[in-house]
Design a protein around this nucleic acid. Structure first.
Lengths: 227, 227
DNA sequence: CGTTCATTTGAAGACACTCAACGTCTGTGG
DNA sequence: CCACAGACGTTGAGTGTCTTCAAATGAACG
């Protein structure tokens, strides 16, 4: 079907990313990124790594957002996760990335750490933290699987509440991603996403000041709907 | 809607399981279950642990099968996984089980290990193995999420191929679970599961010698369909 | 302004669901 | 031996939600 412009564009732009500092000490909550990190600014819709590429680094988002997705056989795209500020991604069981990662809008900034830095570690604390990070990721994917058992309205409500929570805005959401990304994340079509959001606006649950800026006017009702 | 008979039955039968041996050395591929294990026989449709219960043990299936599920707000049930011989389950990020676990048919046997045995460990190898186990589980859930993006026929095809592979039978499947379990696992209704299987039989892709014993007559076509 | 991309809206159709009935198998008890 | 109950599975008809295809509108930018 339709190829995503962002995808093909990023192929040509890969790894033009500007590496700004080496071994720079950063203020991180996790010990994982305490030392030996690189900071990196990524252009909009640039591929960070591709599906099937060797998994050599893990990343932490410190600005902007990243989408992690897989291209399906029928040409559709399944977005597995949106990575926002503070999120860590890129860790794999095998030697290669199962999913592709791309920056979304402007101002995407990452901290990069080589995988080998982890594997060489002999400390049980490091592995334990790694395990816990992975368990939380597992929980997230499980919750996302539950979301896919719901109907369109419930999925959108869940999505808005999730974004509101993760962005730290109690009753507003500044969406960094286009409707197509939301659709591919929620397993819906772009038309259904648009229609459902419009309906929620009509019902007074939300208000669209712009297409990307949504005010949550009735969080309690959204929670009720979200199932 | 309709409550699952298995569910209510198991509530009364909880932990009547017969504990057959303490600290018994078992032939396991993973170091996790090397020492300090208990072997346990579980009656059909018996609850092994419930949603929200304290997560005190991890389990390894050594016979029969287990379903791991969550009851949804609207009364439906989402089966997260079928655990077959060799599978490990029950590990949690938090202190409580996110999903419930129940034996499926006759002959369900488990090996039980206390969580504390893991947490006390100071060896990085143990944590590393735990991490790897969790990463593989994450991969499985991610694949299951992709499955939910497909249509009914593709889901059934995937399911049959998955079971064939996991049961080690190249071109036949002995289903241990009822249609309702398959439906709740694939996010379909029992009617759709039944109809789709019937259609596949009519097309010559499979053959139903009994409802539970399915011969895969055209694995290549099933793979093609499965997307 | 004209171009391009993102979003919205409309109309028609497909796929899976709902509701309902029927069939099959197994064990139980008269 | 047969009748019955109960769990499981199949089949049919009608409906609804979401998709598909198509076009219009809106926003951003030279």
């Amino acid at each position: 079907m339709l190829m995503h412009a962002a995808n093909s564009a990023s192929r040509t732009a890969r790894y033009r990313a500007d590496i700004r500092g080496a071994s720079r000490q950063l203020d991180n909550t996790t010990a994982l990124f305490a030392v030996g990190c690189w900071e990196k600014t990524v252009a909009p819709n640039e591929e960070i790594f591709g599906e099937g590429e060797p998994a050599e680094h893990i990343y932490k988002v410190i600005g902007g957002a990243v989408r992690s997705y897989k291209s399906l056989a029928d040409g559709r795209r399944k977005i597995e996760a949106f990575r926002l500020s503070g999120d860590v991604f890129g860790l794999e069981a095998g030697a290669r990335h199962e999913y592709c990662a791309e920056s979304i809008g402007n101002g995407c900034m990452l901290v990069t750490l080589r995988h080998t830095a982890l594997r060489q570690s002999n400390e049980s604390d490091g592995w334990r933290e790694l395990w816990h990070t992975t368990m939380l990721e597992l929980q997230r994917v499980q919750r996302h699987t539950l979301l896919l058992a719901k109907n369109a309205q419930q999925r959108i409500a869940c999505f808005l509440l999730e974004m509101s929570r993760r962005l730290g805005q109690p009753d507003a959401v500044e969406l960094v991603m286009p409707r197509q990304d939301i659709a591919d994340y929620l397993g819906l079509t772009i038309e259904t996403v648009s229609r459902t959001i419009t309906q929620m606006d009509a019902k007074g649950l939300i208000e669209l000041s712009t297409a990307r800026h949504i005010v949550l006017k009735d969080v309690a009702a959204l929670r009720r709907i979200s199932g």
